[in-house]
Amino acid sequence: MAEEKSREAGQGGGGKKVAADTVDPHSEEHHMIPVWFFVGLLLLIYGILILIQGISEWSHPPGTELSHLHPTVWWSFALIILGGIFSVKHFPKKKS
C-alpha cells in the first residue's frame, strides 16, 4: 500500500516528499503565486470600493449608530493599508 511506503519516507519528519518525485523542478510549481497576494489584492479592491462609498456619503452619513464617526472611511483605510502591504510584499515575481 502506498501509505505504508510513504510512512518510511516520513520517519523523522524531514523525509523525502512524495510529491517531489512527480514534480518537475523547473515547472510552474516553484512559481505559484502566494496566497497572501490574493488576500492583499482582494482587500485592496474592497478598500477602494468602500472608500469611494465613504467619501460619497461624507456629508450625508447613513442612519446607523455612530455614523458621524465615519467608520466606513476609516475602515477603508485599514483595508487599503493591509491590502497594499500584502500585495506589494508578495507581488508575483518573474520566473528566473
Binding site: Y46, L49, I50, Q53, G54, E57, P61, P62, T64, E65, L66, S67, P71, T72, W75, S76
Partner: peptide, 12 residues
C-alpha cells in the same frame, strides 16, 4: 451588523 454598518461595510 445592521446597527453599525452602512453601505459598503454591510457588504463586507
Amino acid at each position: 451588523l445592521a446597527r453599525y454598518c452602512g453601505p459598503g461595510l454591510l457588504g463586507l
